[in-house]
Amino acid sequence: MIASRAKFAASLYATMSISFWGISFVSTKAVLDKLDPYTLLVIRFGIGALFLLILLVLKRYPLKIPLTYIPHLIVLGILGVFVHQVIQATALLTIDASAAGWIISFSPVFTVILSVLFLHEKMTVSKAAGMIVAIIGVLMVTTSGSQQSFQFPINIGYLLMILSTLNWAIYSVLLKRLHIQLPSLVITFYMCLLGFALTTPFLIRNKGWEIMPLLTDVEWAHLLFLGVFVSGVAYWYWAKALEVLEASQVSVFLYLEPVATLITAILLLQEKIIPISILGGIIIIIGVILVNGRLFTFLNSLPWRNKDS
């Protein structure tokens, strides 16, 4: 019973994280017309770090951490926060938020590839077939905005989003494998703080503060959402989910992310629904499920399925 409740809670944490991250593409896209990616990230990480610090103080968590974990946190912060968010924010300068949401669901494929290469897992026929299907789906999404199907060269934004899926797979595997014996909230705080420190020099170089007074209330609301719920709560909850579930189990929740992105992009950004893009997204998800062989795992891991188990 306790194990079932823990898995249900972990599934709920992962679902909330994915929902916030799905909406984050829309919020990021909404403010990129005025802010460059680095200024956006400085504000976002600053708000997130402050929010998490307040939580740490309220919960009376110690801020002091063993020196042993500092290299681990630096690596995770650079990969999962700084590099990942810079790549995605830059990609969203040239592609739609909904397309970004579909492509990010490709990440579990890279997780399997890394497992084969570094963890000596076997490559099965099902995995190989699923990878081919998922790649076809990615090609459909990345060329859906072209006047002619499969027109090349592909927009650099799509390539950056594909790169971000590889980066996220590496981050998730490392976060699970490093076994950092610290509360997930403390880990998230230091990674967010590191993201803020690494992006601040770019803010100074670009004089990003000059544009801040021109932001509207709606744009500040998007930034607050990105700081508190995306940089803060979502990363915290993702780490909490990984404390209970395996990395491969948590990765299946990425299937839900493009749905949140698509719905929010249509409602807030009035993005057009491109049938071939949606079809490509569905094909990506089918391919990823084949790769992981986790159709029933996915269905059973959903919060409303675990509640009564």
Rank of each mutant, 00 (worst) to 15 (best):
I78N: 00
S149P: 15
N306D: 03
G137D: 02
K34F: 04
T142I: 05
I263R: 02
A134W: 01
I2L: 14
E271C: 10
I282C: 08
T68S: 10
G48L: 03
L55F: 12
T15F: 09
F196P: 01
A128Y: 04
W209Q: 11
Y38N: 08
L73I: 12
S149E: 12
G195P: 04
S172A: 14
F253R: 01
W236D: 11
T111R: 07
L242E: 08
S115R: 13
I211Y: 05
A14W: 01
T15N: 07
F118I: 06
L119S: 07
F225S: 06
M131V: 09
L214D: 11
L299E: 10
S27H: 03
I136A: 14
P213H: 05
R205Q: 13
A6R: 14
A14C: 11
N292A: 02
I266K: 05
V230K: 03
L299D: 05
I43L: 11
I289D: 00
G46H: 09
T124H: 06
V125T: 08
Y158F: 14
V141Y: 01
Y255H: 15
E246C: 13
F253T: 03
W168T: 04
K240R: 13
V173A: 11
L198T: 02
H222E: 09
L159H: 09
T15I: 05
G227I: 11
A30L: 12
A97L: 07
V228T: 08
S184R: 08
R305Y: 15
A241L: 06
L295P: 03
A169H: 03
P303Y: 12
L35T: 00
L119N: 07
V291T: 06
H84F: 15
I266Y: 13
Y171E: 01
F225V: 06
